[in-house]
Design a protein around this nucleic acid. Structure first.
Lengths: 151, 151
DNA sequence: AATGAAATGAACTGTCA
DNA sequence: TGACAGTTCATTTCATT
């Protein structure tokens, strides 16, 4: 029901490089007709393997030049505490990503701000006032690279 | 030269929710003709604000159910050490993201593996043998949520 | 300078064999 | 799966504001 053949894998690999390619262009690379390629894409989407396409924004050009990763330790960790924290943190617009993790921290947040002064405002007024927050650790992003990942 | 008006912002916001929408569909939401919408998208792309579209893969359905974040401290931090480390780490297929950061760690890596046993193999054979690696700290991903971010 | 209308070509999407 | 056909979309041209 969810077995992938060689062609599916090549399709995903090609789409990972450029998600805007048409079914026809992909088909030419894979020696497949356009409808056949299109049907494979639709099948992978309906199976949930292809979960969609995300817009890549250059946040620096939009005036958000500072990205900071925050490791957050909660002071209290009951179920209610986790729910409360998650509900409050997802309401902060500057929080781009909320990762619930196991290890030295309970949550890892990706926060974007216009500059360091703006980040300090977010940290003091928004993050440190979240319910149940204990220790917070920060890492400022210098540069990042995305890789296609295994397959 | 790179000023955005209300319509541009609404366009980016709408595309952030679903990056697969056509220019016609977007135009109907924004009360704009299809060519006008299309031209705005192209302009935002040529200015680099819209940097592309990334495929969202359900890695769990692809058999990669384990995601771990690694904080890496380098033992030596000269320019050559950073270059060597980055070159070696980007060659590991299981490494999905390499973030160069300032703070408690020098690098943060997002690593994906089939299971915990597979992750241990990657950690021992690939990560711990990277040039210049000092301390390594791990956080296992339980769940994550992406947010559109400010604008 | 940016828009909308119209026109063209390419891509998508369903049907049939 | 491929071939076909109808529909929608992307892209250019042009006249208008």
């Amino acid at each position: 029901m969810m077995e992938l053949d060689e062609i599916d894998r090549a399709l995903i690999k090609a789409l990972s490089k450029d998600a805007t390619q048409s079914a026809g262009a992909l088909g030419r690379k894979l020696d497949l007709s356009q409808p056949a390629t299109w049907r494979r894409i639709k099948r992978l989407e309906s199976e949930g393997i292809l979960a969609g396409r995300t817009l890549d924004l250059d946040r620096e050009k939009l005036g958000f030049g500072v990205t900071v990763f925050l490791g957050v330790k909660l002071a209290t960790k009951g179920r209610v505490s986790l729910d409360d924290f998650e509900r409050a943190v997802t309401a902060i617009p500057e929080v781009q990503r909320v990762e619930h993790v196991l290890g030295m921290y309970d949550y890892r947040l990706r926060v974007t701000a216009r500059d360091i002064a703006d980040f300090e405002r977010v940290l003091r007024r928004r993050i440190m006032t979240l319910p149940g927050v204990g220790d917070v650790e920060a890492n400022v992003l210098l540069s990042e690279e995305r890789r296609p990942g295994p397959l």
